[in-house]
Nucleic acid binder design. Structure first.
Length: 879
RNA sequence: GGGCGGUUAGCUCAGUUGGUUAGAGCGCCACGUUGACAUCGUGGAGGCCAUUGGUUCGAGUCCAUUACCGCCCA
């Protein structure tokens, strides 16, 4: 017999089970044609990532579904893995290199540097997967994949080459963030904004064939060298007469058009804007809309190039000075004023970011996305919550081409080679044979270009010819469920749907769950810089992993954010303690009663409380199946929380206590019934709190060694157990108990007195059931004297509930009444009853209501009125 | 600027197709501990369901308006 420890020690117990689960390989999956499969691919965390509270939520959600389906008899396969995270990883290693050796990546060269990153990855990468192990995720570790591993890289090349050959991939221009100190392109994430005091210059652009001039305001006069238009807002009446006119661009001395574009802010400066498409993101778009030429005036190291006339070779500041000098000397500069604005700078080098027009590779998205729109419209792929479908359609209908090249070294280098002499392009999955005559495109692919293939690449996808024999792919694809953050619906989810349809000819997953964003108690996003993100590993040690898992899911409603405060973890911890102690109580009594040699057979009949808990348990199964199928995870935990704590512990176990001290047949039946329900509770809870349920399940029965609760059948719904009468009767019973407790609370020091309890039913239903209920009453109101309970129809002053009035008759001396006036509450209740009755009477007096409302609604109102009046009358006599 | 949400108890949120006196958890107040659990039990207080208008016999629920808050995209 295993001793039930008085305290649950999560840290050591979790570690024990984690090791056993992994050693036994119980979450390994393989093709099993006997069973239906349930497959899930993990959203691959960054190889540089550290576990944060959002990961806890997302991975617990997936684990709940995997564990639930596994217990429900599915062959579950949950594939783990990591993302090579181009930018983040490269930056990380660059920083280490600088810190440790004082070198830059250029000192090593591309090949050496990439090798260094691989070394770093082997040593330090993937900490997050170790942390996920601690979370208890039931993934198949033997299937771990990496977006840059051999198989996935092959898939990336295969897809790139195929798209290129089909004409979806093309080279185009795009403005990128250029850091001219480190000479690299930066992503938006690597940029910060600082406030800078500058000058705003007002420059005159003479209008052609006119004595007038248009005045524009700019902080960057040197970029005039690349101006190809001046823009005004079409709604701006000051300039409407200029339609079709041109201006003369000073310095360069050429004619450029005036264009009308609503992008222009009428209130800024003069309301006229110079347009430099090659050196400003917004100007680039204006240029595209109006077919303007984009003239690049800079070299990669931040000097004016050959398009910059006499300023060629000058730095940005120098050329600005010289251009200004020219403008001033020739009367173009009208005024200058102080101006403070935000300037983008490189987070690493501090260089002012230069928007720079460059050649990039794009995927043409319009045609590719059409089938992906269709499958969501048809409900083949479902989003939860559904509101994201609207966002999805809106984005897909206006889809922009995808820029897939990145100026990095870490990643899948683009499989394009240029012929050194002819410039001819070669695009294949393998390099050209005469490699010495070719140069590969230096850029790598966007990290998402590997993750968009994830749902099939992890199962060994190669190409359609070989896939027919790929058993894993045939069995597991399409996957069933994806849980991810709504921020990446376009970056990732939409693109996976597109690639799945293009390359597997099928959707990648059926249900997508967009989980909540976890925020702090004040509603701010968790972030490193705010320092408001609690370390989940610390919380797991303090409160237990299960407590954290339970809490985060409990707090995360479908479709809105979670406000998570560290202290909230007490919700989960307290619940687990409650569950633990209930188990301990039951086991102690179970062992005692079952070992009693005087034991007899159990009574076969169920009493009203047993029928009630059976019915309630069945309700709970029905609820949680509904909630899990509806992806309402917090409601799944909430209904279990309420059932375990309120129904099972507060009422059922309390009632069971009365029976445990009775004769053998009664006590045996009572403890067996309670234990049976309790074991089923453990199964229902296992998906969300796997460790503690596994532990208790083993403590309850030592013969379970070597088995696991995670492969035990999930309790099934049995509608024959639903018992409306017992549920109603139990509500009446609760009213009787609560009313008695209220009566009890009126007296001070009542424990020292003996009394009889007199009960008066307030309506027919109560009167009919009172005999069945009074037996269980005594224990629950702690009536120590063991005195008789009698019911009466006579009039008396006492406490009234919905169904009963209760009064104590003291044997001999009576305790003092607290607060003297016991009649206050009754008066108050009578008042509110009166308001209620008047309300119904008014309703029933309304002709329109009687004519138009449904018959059963009217009947209900009549019944309500009758009950209320009856109760009013009985209570009023009690005064 | 475009799109999508939200506004119900002190806090965080439920409230299914309109139909009991609008619920829960936490917090608060009172009482309670030789009993599985103080990481607890029992009881209680606390709400003009953001605004204005409409549809309806009947609106927290449906429609519109305003205000405020938030998210995504540009």
């Amino acid at each position: 017999m295993i001793e039930f420890p008085s305290k649950y020690e999560p840290v050591s117990i979790e570690e024990k089970w984690r090791q056993i689960w992994e050693a036994d390989g119980i979450y390994k999956s393989s093709v099993n044609s006997e069973k239906k499969k349930y497959s899930v691919v993990i959203p691959p965390p960054n190889v540089t990532g550290m576990l944060h509270i959002g990961h806890i939520l997302n991975n617990t959600i997936q684990d709940i579904y995997c564990r639930w389906k596994r217990m429900a008899g599915y062959e579950v396969c949950w594939v783990p893995g990591m993302d090579h995270a181009g930018i983040a990883t490269q930056i990380k290693v660059e920083q280490e290199l600088k810190k440790n050796e004082g070198k830059s990546k250029y000192d090593l060269g591309r090949e050496e540097f990439v090798k260094l990153i691989w070394d770093w990855k082997e040593k330090y990468g993937g900490i997050i997967l170790k942390q996920l192990r601690k979370l208890g995720v039931s993934v198949d570790w033997s299937r771990e994949r990496f977006t840059l591993d051999k198989g996935l890289s092959r898939a990336v090349r295969e897809v790139f080459v195929d798209l290129y050959k089909k004409g979806y991939i093309y080279k185009g221009k795009r403005i990128i963030n250029w850091d001219n100190i480190t000479q690299t392109a930066l992503s938006d994430d690597e940029i910060s904004y600082i406030e800078k005091r500058d000058k705003l210059y007002y420059v005159k652009y003479p209008i052609v064939d006119s004595n007038d001039a248009l005045v524009i305001a700019t902080t960057r006069p040197e970029t005039m060298l690349g101006d190809t238009a001046v823009a005004v807002n079409p709604a701006d009446k000051r300039y409407s007469h200029l339609a079709g006119k041109k201006v003369i661009l000073p310095v360069v001395n050429k004619e450029i058009p005036i264009v009308f574009d609503s992008y222009v802010d009428m209130s800024f400066g003069t309301g006229a804007l110079k347009i430099t498409p090659a050196h400003d993101m917004n100007d680039f778009e204006v240029g595209q809309r109006h077919n303007l030429e984009a003239i690049n005036i800079l070299t990669k190291d931040g000097k004016i190039n050959e398009n910059g006339l006499q300023y060629k070779g000058q730095g940005i500041n120098e050329s600005r000075k010289n251009v200004l000098k020219y403008l001033k000397a020739n009367g173009y500069l009208i005024k200058e004023e102080d101006y403070t604005h935000n300037v983008a700078v490189s987070e690493r080098s501090g260089a002012v970011i230069e928007p720079f027009l460059s050649d990039q590779w794009f995927v043409s998205m319009k045609k590719l996305s059409e089938p992906a729109i269709q499958v969501v419209k048809e409900g083949k792929v479902r989003f939860h919550p559904d509101k994201w479908t609207k966002t999805y359609f809106h984005w897909m209908d206006n889809v922009k081409d995808w820029c897939i090249s990145r100026q990095l070294w870490w990643g899948h280098q683009i499989p394009i080679w240029y012929h050194n002499e002819t410039g001819e392009i070669y695009c294949e999955t393998t390099p050209p044979k005469d490699i010495e005559n070719w140069t590969q495109d230096p850029d790598v692919l966007d990290t998402w270009f590997s993750s968009w293939l994830w749902p099939f690449s992890v199962f060994g996808w190669e190409n359609s010819a070989k896939d027919k024999e790929n058993k894993d792919l045939n069995y597991y694809y399409p996957t069933d469920f994806l849980s991810t953050a709504p921020e990446i619906i376009f970056l990732w989810v939409a693109r996976m749907i597109i690639s799945g349809l293009e390359y597997m000819n099928d959707i990648p997953f059926k249900d997508v769950y967009f989980h909540s964003t976890v925020r702090d108690g004040k509603g701010r996003k968790m972030s490193k810089s705010l320092g408001n993100s609690p370390d989940p590993l610390v919380l797991m040690d303090q409160y237990g992993t299960d407590a954290l898992r339970f809490t985060i899911v409990y707090l995360a409603p479908l479709g809105s954010d979670v406000l998570f405060d560290e202290k909230n973890t007490e919700i989960g911890r307290n619940f687990i303690t409650k569950l633990w102690n209930a188990g301990r109580f039951l086991k102690m009594n179970y062992d005692r009663i079952m070992n009693d040699s005087a034991s007899g057979d159990e009574e076969p009949e169920y009493d009203f409380a047993e029928k009630w808990i059976d019915s309630r348990f069945n309700d709970t199964i029905r609820d949680i199946e509904f909630y899990l199928n509806a992806y309402r995870l917090n409601d799944y935990t909430k209904s279990l929380y309420a059932f375990v704590w309120s129904d099972f512990c507060d009422w059922y176990i309390e009632l069971t206590k009365v029976k445990l001290s009775k004769n053998a047949s009664t006590s045996r039946k009572a403890i067996k019934r309670a234990m049976d329900i309790y074991e089923n509770i453990l199964k229902l809870l296992h998906p969300v709190i796997p460790y503690v349920t596994e532990e208790i399940w083993h403590i309850l029965d030592e013969s379970r060694e070597g088995k696991t609760i995670s492969k035990i059948e999930f309790p099934a719904l049995d509608e024959t157990k639903y018992d409306e009468n017992s549920e109603k009767l139990f509500e009446i019973f609760k009213d009787l108990v609560t009313t008695s407790r209220n009566e009890r609370a009126k007296y001070a020091g009542i424990n020292d007195y003996e009394f009889d309890i007199r009960i008066k039913p307030l309506n027919t239903t109560a009167a009919e059931s009172v005999n069945e209920l009074t037996d269980s009453l005594q224990m629950l109101i702690n009536n120590k004297g063991g005195t008789a309970i009698e019911h009466t129809t006579g009039e008396f002053a006492g406490t009234s509930g919905d169904y009963f009035a209760v009064k104590f008759d003291f044997k001999g001396a009576a305790p003092k009444l607290k607060n003297g006036d016991a009649g206050v509450k009754t008066t108050k209740e009578l008042e509110s009853l009166k308001v209620y009755i008047t309300g119904i009477e008014k309703k029933l007096g309304n002709k329109n209501f009687l004519e138009k409302a449904a018959a059963d609604v009217i009947e209900k109102e009549r019944q309500k009125l009758k009950d209320a009046k009856e109760k009013y009358e009985k209570i009023s006599k009690m005064k």
